[in-house]
Structures are given as C-alpha cells and as structure tokens.
Design a protein around this nucleic acid. Structure first.
Length: 413
RNA sequence: GGAGGGGUACCCAAGCGGCCAACGGGGGCAGACUGUAAAUCUGCUGGCUUAUGCCUUCGUAGGUUCGAAUCCUACCCCCUCCA
C-alpha cells in the first residue's frame, strides 16, 4: 500500500495498522485535504475496555493526531439487544442504567487516549441507542432493508463461514450488519462522518455501511480495517493469569498493566512499540535491534510507554520503579500490601490469598508444596508456615513472592 | 407440530450403576532451563481446620438402589432432519 500523501494513512502504514481500505486513493486525498470525521464502534457490555480494544483506540488516537475528528460510537442500543453469538446460556440483558454506567466508565479511559475538546478535531462520544431505540420496524425495513440483498449478505465471510460449518446464525445476528450500516449513515448525517474503522473481522459490516451510504445518502463513505493482533505464538492478545487485561485501573492495577507489557514476547516487541506507543520510529527501530537479554530494555520501554498512555505519567513511572525494585529483590512501594498486626503471626497461605496470589487455601497450599512461594527469597517450607514480625526487615517490611513474577509486600501495621 | 441427537469442571471432550472429584486434549499455574522471552521437559489444576477424612459438582427437580454423571419420571435449554 501507499505511498500516501496524507499524514494519517502514512502513519498507519508505517506503524502497521493497515489491513484493508475500501478506496485507498480517495481516502488518502480526503485525509490530506480536509478535516475528516471517523468512527469506531465499541461494546458497552462491561465497565471497562481491555487490551483487545487497544488497536482500535490507538487508531482513533492516530486519526486525531493526524488532524481529524475521532468519534467513539458506544453500542448502547445493540448492547440492549444482547449479542447472541456463542452458545452459552442466554446472556443476561443489561438494563439501561447499567449500560449508561458502563459507558460513563469507559469514557474515562478514552479521555486518556483522545482529546475531547470543543475544537474541530475534538473527540466525540455518541451512543447508537439515541437513534436505534426509536426505530420503527416497518419503516426501517422499507428505508434501510431494501438496500440489502440476501444474496450479498450470504456471501459475507461472517455469514458464509457460519453456514458452512452448520453453526447457527440467528436472525438477530444476521441483522447486525444492517444495524451497523445504519449507524454509519446516521453518523454521516449527524457528524459528517465519512470513515469507519475497525478490526479485520468487521470488514464485511463496514463495507455494508459504505454501500448503504452510497445508496441511501449518496455519499462516499470509507472503510478501513486493522489486522487482527495476535502474539507471535499465535495466541490472541490480552489474556493473563487473572483474566482479561483491562484498561481501567479499578479492574487491573497500573502495575499489573505494566507487567503485561513487560512480558511481551521477543518477536512482538517492535510491532507493539509501533502500535501501542507514540515513540518515534527511529527510536523503535533502534530498540528493535536489541538481542537476547538486552531486549529486556526494550520491553521496559514498551511497558512504561504503554502504561503512560493508559494510566498517565505518574502511574507509569511508579510501576516501572516498583518493578525494578521488586524484581531486583527489594521490597517496593506499589505492590499489593498486607498489613501485619503486632504480635499476630499469620499463615503464609492466608497472606497469599489476601494479596491475590491464590484464590483458595487449596491453591495456596499447592503453591507452597510445589515450592512456588518464597518469603524474602527463601522458599517457604511447609503449608503451615507463618509470618511474624521476626520476618520483617529493618524497614518493617517483608516480601512474598509467588513464581517468578508475582510479588507482594508485608508491612508492620 | 413430528422424528432423532445432545446438555459433564475455564474451553473441547470421554465416561454410561460402585475402582469417579470424574480419561484425554487445550488453556492456566508451579518447578527445571533462562533473560520477568520463546521452545522443551516435569508436576499441579473443585472446596475445606491436610485429612487412608469431610463437603459440593456431571442442565433442573424428583424417584429407584446399600450405592447414580451413569437407570426411571417430569421439566428447561440447544442442535439436526421432516412438516
């Protein structure tokens, strides 16, 4: 692809965000000559986004950096219906209050990545419930449904694959692409939004929106997708011991977020630096050259830069310092901390649970038995070992470690 | 509406009266090796006052039996084919 004259596409291309574009040349020209508005849709099913959403968030960020206006579309309306995919028991439907609370919480995260000012390139957050909730079925079919042919929809990958594998596809799901196409046209009308971005799995839906725009609004709309991000080992990004890698601090501490990036596989470091940090490309290519143990430096840079974007400078610095100390064998601020009351020894097992290192006594006991737990770098002998003031150092702290990566602090109360 | 098939732990998937807290994968955790990497090997992977112990779990509720994930009854949900 390329070369591009617009800053926007050039940057996306250099940093590895491009997968497909509907009309590369025209989009490039538009992005070069005018301030565009572009959007990406997000779920409102949880009160926090996770790393899996990060590429999309970064796309909007790049878009704004390149002098355009990013629109965050929250799927409040579609969330109300509930995503029927997956065969688990019917997902509980969220109430409007829950959805609105989720949207408010998610907005906090976006405020880190985007600038919601009142200027021409200020970010905007909208909820598709605003227009979906009042839709009339008949009117919708007549105005929008007529522009979609079943023939075409059946050829879309998302539909075809399901049918080929003889997996169920509900009518509701089948309608998702129509709703999404409608969103695009609605955003065009309300915000002169002419670009929809998304992950590569959204390509079909995005294209439908582009086509609907042409037929219904006689507008040229654009679609752009980013590649699906997996780790070099092929795993989907964003899973850790404790579940999803959340972007909200109340779900995952900045320290743990930093750790997530610090543990990036060697082969992914360059790619992640380009996509998930604002570091200049020259700096990145230098870091990328590092080999063997030296590449750990690059991982630290990645972790701090990525955490900075999501949680701010102060939290990122703190996480970096905490990590250096903790892994260097010292007790450190910022780790989960257990307060030891004077004269009350506590079982190691209970402390491990309190620090979130084990979810049950059985698990904690197992960890100890397998030699996975250390107190001040000394292996904990038996499952009945306890911690008392004698274990604290001069500063009144002790360190509990599980495995190689998880550290906790014990402090005099 | 009719006829079949199915619901098992985080996921997939065995088991089809006792030896089942439940084979085997995957994932995850821990150990070894390392660089807080990858790959590889080993162990663990329901809970409890660690116990040749107890409790809870095989869609839900009952029942048969000394004993059930396994048999019976009803109900709920899913899938396939026919109408």
């Amino acid at each position: 692809m390329g070369p591009f004259q617009s800053d926007f596409l050039r940057i996306l291309n250099e940093r590895g965000y491009l997968h497909q574009i509907t009309d590369e040349t025209s989009l490039d020209a538009n992005a070069h000559s005018q301030v565009m508005s572009g959007y990406i849709g997000f779920d409102a099913t949880a009160d926090s986004l996770h790393v899996g959403n990060l590429v999309q968030i970064m796309l909007l960020r790049r878009f704004q950096q390149a002098g355009h206006r990013p629109i965050v579309l929250m799927g409040g309306g579609t969330t109300k219906v509930g995503d029927p995919s997956g065969r688990d028991e019917t997902r509980q439907l969220l109430t409007e209050q829950q959805i609105n609370a989720n949207i408010a919480a998610i907005r906090q995260t976006f405020a880190r990545f985007l600038d919601f000012n009142d200027g021409p390139t200020g970010a905007v957050m909208v909820n598709n419930d605003d227009w979906l909730k009042d839709l009339q079925y008949i009117a919708f079919l007549r105005d929008v449904g007529r522009h979609f042919t079943i023939n075409r929809m059946l050829t879309m990958d998302s539909v075809r694959l399901r049918l080929e594998r003889e997996q169920p596809l509900t009518f509701l799901e089948f309608n998702y692409m129509i709703m999404q196409g409608y969103d695009f046209v609605e955003l065009f009308k309300r915000y002169a939004c002419t670009l929809q971005m998304g992950g590569s799995d959204q390509w079909g839906n995005i294209v439908q929106g582009v086509e609907l725009g042409r037929r219904k609004a006689e507008a040229q709309l654009f679609g752009l997708t980013s590649p699906l991000i997996t780790t070099s080992s092929g795993a989907k990004m964003g899973k850790t011991a404790s579940g999803a890698v959340w972007l909200s601090a109340h779900r995952l501490s900045p320290y743990d977020y930093w750790q997530f990036w610090r543990n990036t596989e060697d082969a992914d470091v360059g790619r992640f630096l380009r996509m998930f940090t604002d570091l200049p490309l020259s700096e990145i290519s230098r870091l990328e050259q590092l080999k063997d143990a030296d590449i750990n430096v690059a991982k630290q840079v990645l972790a701090t830069a990525a955490t900075r974007l999501c949680h701010g400078d102060a939290q990122a610095e703190l996480a970096a310092i905490t990590a250096t100390r903790a892994f260097g064998g010292a007790a450190a601020e910022g780790l989960p901390t257990f307060i030891l009351k004077a004269g009350e020894p506590v079982q190691v097992i209970d402390v491990a649970i309190a620090l979130g290192m084990a979810s049950s006594k059985s698990e904690a006991r197992r960890l100890v038995e397998q030699g996975g737990v250390r107190l001040n770098d000394q292996p904990v002998r038996g499952p009945n070992a306890s911690i008392s003031e004698a274990d604290l150092d001069g500063a009144g702290t002790a360190r509990l470690t599980v495995g190689k990566k998880r550290h906790g602090l014990i402090r005099r109360g």
